[in-house]
């Protein structure tokens, strides 16, 4: 292994991660138990599981927003802390978390501003990203003038601003209606196609996980752990995908895995075949 080639084909590597809240107290919670997960560069991974199973916690450990009790997370071949400091990931949350005192464009500029980009360079980059999420016309608007879906698109543009190789998304479409949600899913896939990013995507929706992902990571609560990883092979997605045989097979496989039936493997085999 050469020291001069820091380029890694592994986007994220989680090794033996434990997270225990309030350790040693009466309200102790083991949010994560021995999580091992590798995400290859360019891969789209969904985390799915019942509420409280530790999806957000896992994402926050990878983002270095919280420290694991045990184990470690690596992003782009470096420690999670270094990756955060070097802005090797972009993050989007269920709440768009836009700043009301900034225009839409200046919200997208925020990460660039923190990186010390010049005014004109960051304005140009922000406009490029707003074009990508089809909100260029709203650059001068204030966040509250936008619908929930539009706000979420701004948040996604912001997470892409520094062009990080990895996107961490915690239920970004959770607050949207079904129609908007499907449109946003297609948009996210298109953006991912255009940019080649790796994505870790937390969701409660089985169809959403299957539609978007290369692999669906199924988790179970108390203690939070990975119980199953389901490969999805839908090829390039379009509107027909949602009605395709393989899509339903994937949905069934994930649903069964969530119910804790290892019989999911039969359905899983079909996902690959069809």
């Amino acid at each position: 292994m050469s020291v001069t080639s820091p380029v890694s084909t592994t986007a994220v590597r989680a090794t033996g991660i434990w997270k225990v809240f309030n350790e040693g107290q009466a309200n102790e919670v083991t949010a994560l138990q021995d999580i091992n997960l590798t995400v290859e560069a360019g891969e789209f991974i969904s985390l799915i599981g019942p509420s409280g199973c530790g999806k957000s916690t896992l994402l926050r450990v990878i983002a270095d927003l919280t420290h694991p009790t045990k184990g470690s997370a690596e992003v782009a071949g470096m420690s999670a802390a270094d990756a955060r400091q070097q802005q090797r990931y972009g993050m989007a949350f269920q709440q768009a978390a836009l700043f009301d005192w900034r225009t839409v464009r200046r919200n997208v500029e925020l990460p660039l501003e923190l990186q010390g980009w010049s005014k004109s360079a960051r304005a140009a980059r922000a406009m490029e990203l707003l074009e990508m999420v089809q909100l260029a016309d709203f650059a001068g608007h204030r966040p509250w003038e936008l619908s929930g879906g539009m706000q979420q698109r701004v948040a996604i543009a912001r997470s892409l601003a520094v062009d990080p190789p990895l996107l961490l998304m915690d239920e970004p479409f959770g607050a949207l209606d079904e129609m908007t949600r499907e449109r946003m899913q297609n948009e996210l896939l298109r953006i991912r196609q255009e940019t080649g990013k790796s994505v870790i995507f937390v969701t409660h929706s089985i169809p959403e996980a299957v539609y978007l992902s290369d692999r669906v990571v199924v988790m179970s609560p108390r203690p939070g752990r990975i119980t199953d990883i389901i490969d999805v092979n839908l090829g390039s997605r379009d509107e027909d995908t949602r009605e395709a045989e393989a899509f339903f097979a994937g949905v069934t496989a994930v649903r069964e895995a969530l119910r804790g039936r290892t019989g999911g493997s039969a359905a899983r085999a079909r996902v690959g075949e069809v």
Partner: peptide, 18 residues
Amino acid sequence: VQPVQLELMRSMNARPRT
């Protein structure tokens, strides 16, 4: 301040002064 906004700032490696 909204906790999610604080997390966002941290994810962007913002210093306390920022």
